[in-house]
């Protein structure tokens, strides 16, 4: 089974600051693997263990952040056998319909039986790139996969947790699945895996290599701004003696009555 695990490098939340005009400053933020994609990579590793005869390619489409050797080693230390990258300036801040077309084109180039994506990305959280790619590839596509039950050469059986019920689905391959954040707990790579990562092959492709079709102009970003915070009283009582607790209780009673 040929498995592709998709991932995105996103700026570390903690290092993003808000400028006085409300815009975001990500210039000091380090790019790391999107947390939700660690679940996708781990799910690929689990399916490989279940199925035996499988190879995992980690795939990412993006801008210059993908050139960093450290980030490449990081993803490869988590279980994929090789890495495929499509790097181009046009993918900096690309919208989902754009990225999805590149992923679909790259997957078609490398071949696949199963593409695994995360629930969304920590930056835009559009929750659609994998689904769009699957639909473009005209294969079975589903989101919210919360458990891998079984995997064979021709199909996988999964659970999908929804608001009202859990669906058990038999999905004929080739397919694209997006996994939920609670599907697994990604393992921390071992020292051996970290050292081994440097020896794994990296296939860096260009837009021309993947023969991506024309991207339609479906949407554009207008603004990304921190919302205005509601004014709060910020009355903080320090200490937990009876008197202070009583003062806090008075505020609580006011609020709930």
């Amino acid at each position: 089974m040929n498995i592709i695990a998709c991932y995105k490098l996103v700026p570390e939340d903690q290092d993003i600051t808000v400028n006085p005009d409300g815009s975001l400053d990500t210039s000091r933020a380090e790019f790391k693997i999107n947390t939700f994609d660690l679940n996708a990579i781990e799910a690929a590793v689990d399916i490989k263990a279940m199925q035996g005869d499988a190879t995992i390619t980690a795939l990412s489409v993006g801008g210059k952040a993908l050139e960093a050797v450290k980030a490449r080693k990081d993803v490869l230390s988590r279980g994929p056998d090789s890495l495929a990258l499509v790097i181009d300036e046009q993918f900096e801040q690309a919208l989902p319909h754009h990225t999805a077309r590149a992923i679909a084109a790259a997957a078609q180039k490398t071949g696949f039986d199963l593409i695994i994506c995360g629930d969304g990305s920590g930056d835009l959280y559009a929750q659609q790139v994998g689904l769009l790619a699957g639909e473009l590839l005209e294969v079975a596509t589903i989101n919210g996969v919360s458990k891998i039950v079984a995997a064979t050469e021709s199909s996988i059986t999964v659970e999908r947790a929804l608001d009202d019920e859990v669906e058990v689905l038999e999905i004929t391959l080739p397919a694209v699945i997006a996994v939920s954040a609670d599907i697994n707990n990604p393992k921390i790579p071992s020292m051996k895996a970290i050292l081994g990562a440097a020896k794994k092959p990296v296939n860096a492709m260009t837009v021309a290599d993947i023969e991506m079709t024309q991207v339609p102009a479906l949407a554009e970003t207008i603004a990304v701004n921190a919302p205005k915070q509601k004014q709060r009283q910020q009355i903080v009582i320090e200490g937990d003696d009876d008197e202070q607790i009583a003062a806090f209780v008075a505020h609580l009673r006011n609020a709930i009555n």
């Binding site: 709060r232 009355i235 903080v236 009582i237 200490g239 937990d240 009876d242 607790i245 806090f248 209780v249």
Partner: peptide, 24 residues
């Protein structure tokens, strides 16, 4: 959290929580 709160109490949850229950 105190920056986003109208009313805050700095204290030990083990002590405050039972006291809130008792008060209500």
């Amino acid at each position: 959290i105190f920056q986003y709160a109208d009313y805050g109490l700095v204290g030990d949850i083990n002590k405050v929580l039972p006291a809130l229950v008792k008060a209500l």
